[in-house]
Design a protein around this nucleic acid. Structure first.
Lengths: 150, 150
DNA sequence: TTTACTGTTGCAAATAATCGCAATAAGGAA
DNA sequence: TTCCTTATTGCGATTATTTGCAACAGTAAA
């Protein structure tokens, strides 16, 4: 977890300009405990000042994500959530039938992580991915292909 | 890969009604070779008939995905692509800096797959996931002052 | 300081995707 | 076949997100 000063300083070092809007967004954002939608984050900001445009919030969160200071969660229905980086694996198993989300963790992601670095020199954000599939309940209801229903 | 008749029959068996719109969408869709946007699929349909509404295409592709007949790829910018299931692992490593997409495969997904089934009884669609991260080139640029790619 | 460069913002318009609802029509039963 | 139930469609409205652009303002250099 980063302190908001730390984020701001790093952004500056990387050549981004530090505007009052960005400082405030970073400050609010770094206090977030769970994943929040852009709208929710925008609402929190509105309570402090109305001088920040919604588009700026979108752009700043995108920036924080690109620069590695935000986790980003895309749900299947297009909704996007952001949160500060959380230590430890945090996998979302999203059922494409019932939209249930299971918070999972798995040892094997470590091997996967290593393999991506090995083969492709790619540093994957494997600690907060969403993976689609079918959950236990929905799988039982699903007849096999070409099999008769009832 | 499924023949479109096979998809239609299975949908029917599962209690979905087979409309001319669905039949045509399934037929066009099953011929797709690579991932396409909804708009692209809609355009293909328009060349045959203008009697299918865009919303119907969205709903049908969503249905095909839910029922396991379509792969679905969510890119970071919100764009969604669909394709018929392709055999073999097909992982997209998406760089959140430069948006480059690396087509990858990894032995370790098998272990991950097994672990999800084991622990959560969750059948993950691990053969066509998108994973965000930072690619080799962008990772090297990171410590330096960075050029904006926005 | 002051200036100059250019990244960032706000706003409004554009785009993408979803949703509510009335009309339609698929599929089973009679 | 004809009727009935209700899933599905089309359409327009709505929501969510992105984008273009002119004005503004951070930052470094003079």
């Amino acid at each position: 977890m980063y302190h908001h000063k730390q984020i701001v300083n790093t952004l500056k070092e990387r050549g981004y300009r530090i505007t009052p809007q960005r400082e405030l967004i970073v400050q609010i954002f770094s206090q977030i405990e769970k994943h929040q939608s852009v709208e929710e984050i925008y609402d929190s900001l509105q309570k402090i000042t109305t001088a920040i445009n919604l588009a700026t919030v979108y752009r700043t969160l995108e920036l924080l994500w690109r620069e590695g200071f935000a986790q980003r969660n895309d749900l299947s229905d297009g909704r996007v959530f952001f949160a500060p980086p959380i230590h430890g694996t945090h996998i979302h198993l999203v059922c494409r039938k019932c939209n249930q989300v299971i918070d999972a963790d798995a040892e094997s992601v470590l091997a996967l992580d290593a393999e991506f670095v090995d083969k492709y020199n790619f540093k994957a954000d494997l600690d907060h991915i969403s993976i689609f599939g079918v959950c236990e309940g929905c799988d039982q209801n699903e007849p096999d292909l070409k099999e008769d229903v009832e």
